[in-house]
C-alpha cells in the first residue's frame, strides 16, 4: 500500500443549502483508496455514502477540502472516463436493445464500430447475458437488467467501478447470486471498486475494506479491514471470521448512530 492512492480525499466537506438551512451531507472526510481494492461504504440513510460516491464521480461538487481521482480533479477524471458508474436502478434506455444499451458509452466515446462490437459482445458474455442481445430492457428480469447495466459500465473498460447500491432493489436470492458473480468479476478484472451498500453481509462478503459512516453530519466513523481471501464461496458467511467482522461493522454502525431521534 505504499504506491500512490487512486482516490484520495482529505478534509472533504459538502454542505447542501436547503430551505430549512444547511445540511451537512459530508463533514471532514479523509480517505485513501488504492488500486485493486474493493471498498464498501456502509451506513444508515443520510450518512452521505451516496454523496461521497457522487463527489468521486464529479456528479456533486464538494464545498471544502480536496479530492483527487487518479491524481486529477474528479472533473478531469470524468472527462477521461476514468470510471464506470452503476446506479441503484439499471437505468437502461427502453428504446435500445440490450446490446445497444451496453454499447451506449462506446457511441458517446466515438469508438470505431468493430472495437465497440467486440467490447459489447465480451461484456455481455461476462455478465452471463449472451443470447439476450436483441431483447429490450423491459423483457428482462430486474436482476438481468442490473447485470446489463454492469456490462455497460464495464464496456468503458475503466480501471475503477463506482457502484451505488446496485443490488438494493433486488430480492435476496438474486442479490446473493449477483454478489458471487461480482466477486468473480473483480478477481478476474482486478478493478478498483467503490461500493455503496446498507447491507452488512453484502459489505463483509465483498470488501477488502469497509468504511463505516454515520449521519448528521455525514462522516467516517471507522474503517475496518476485511480480507477473507481471494476465493470466497457464499458459505463463508457461516464462518466465525465472517461473523466476527460483521459484528465489528454492526458495533461501529451502532456507535456512530444515536437512536434517540
Amino acid at each position: 500500500m505504499s504506491e500512490k492512492p487512486v482516490i484520495s480525499a482529505s478534509g472533504l466537506s459538502l454542505v447542501f443549502a436547503t430551505h430549512d438551512g444547511p445540511v451537512h451531507a459530508l463533514s471532514n472526510i479523509n480517505l485513501d483508496i488504492h488500486e485493486g481494492e474493493f471498498v464498501s461504504l456502509i451506513g444508515p440513510s443520510g450518512c452521505g455514502k451516496t454523496t461521497l460516491l457522487r463527489v468521486i464521480a464529479d456528479l456533486e461538487q464538494p464545498t471544502a477540502g480536496t479530492i483527487t481521482v487518479n491524481g486529477m480533479t474528479p472533473h478531469q477524471a470524468r472527462e477521461r472516463r476514468a470510471y464506470g458508474y452503476v446506479f441503484q436502478q439499471a437505468a437502461l434506455f427502453p428504446w435500445r436493445t440490450i446490446a445497444a444499451n451496453v454499447g451506449l458509452p462506446l457511441e458517446v466515446m466515438g469508438l470505431d464500430k468493430a472495437e465497440a462490437q467486440r467490447r459489447v459482445k465480451e461484456n455481455i458474455a461476462l455478465v452471463n447475458l449472451a443470447g439476450f442481445e436483441k431483447k429490450h430492457p423491459w423483457q428482462l428480469s430486474g436482476g438481468m437488467q442490473q447485470r446489463a447495466s454492469i456490462a455497460r459500465a464495464l464496456a468503458v473498460e475503466p480501471a475503477m467501478l463506482l457502484m451505488d447500491e446496485p443490488f438494493g432493489a433486488l430480492d435476496e436470492i438474486v442479490r446473493d447470486h449477483l454478489n458471487e458473480q461480482l466477486l468473480k468479476l473483480w478477481a478476474k478484472t482486478k478493478k478498483t471498486v467503490v461500493f455503496v451498500t446498507h447491507s452488512i453481509p453484502e459489505a463483509v462478503f465483498l470488501s477488502t475494506r469497509i468504511v463505516v459512516m454515520s449521519p448528521r453530519p455525514g462522516r467516517i466513523h471507522e474503517i475496518i479491514d476485511c480480507n477473507l481471501g481471494a476465493d470466497r464461496p457464499l458459505e463463508i458467511r457461516e464462518t466465525l471470521e465472517f461473523q466476527r467482522i460483521a459484528q465489528q461493522v454492526r458495533d461501529g454502525l451502532r456507535a456512530g448512530h444515536s437512536y434517540d431521534d
Binding site: 456528479l59 470524468r78 472527462e79 470510471y83 434506455f93 458517446v108
Partner: peptide, 25 residues
C-alpha cells in the same frame, strides 16, 4: 429521468450527444 441524465454525464457526453441519445428519444 435524473438518473439517466447523470449516466450520460458519467460518460462525459456533450450537450448534443445527450440530447440525441437520451433526451430526444
Amino acid at each position: 429521468g435524473a438518473m439517466e441524465r447523470d449516466l450520460m454525464r458519467t460518460y462525459a457526453a456533450s450537450h448534443w450527444q445527450s440530447l440525441f441519445m437520451l433526451r430526444l428519444p
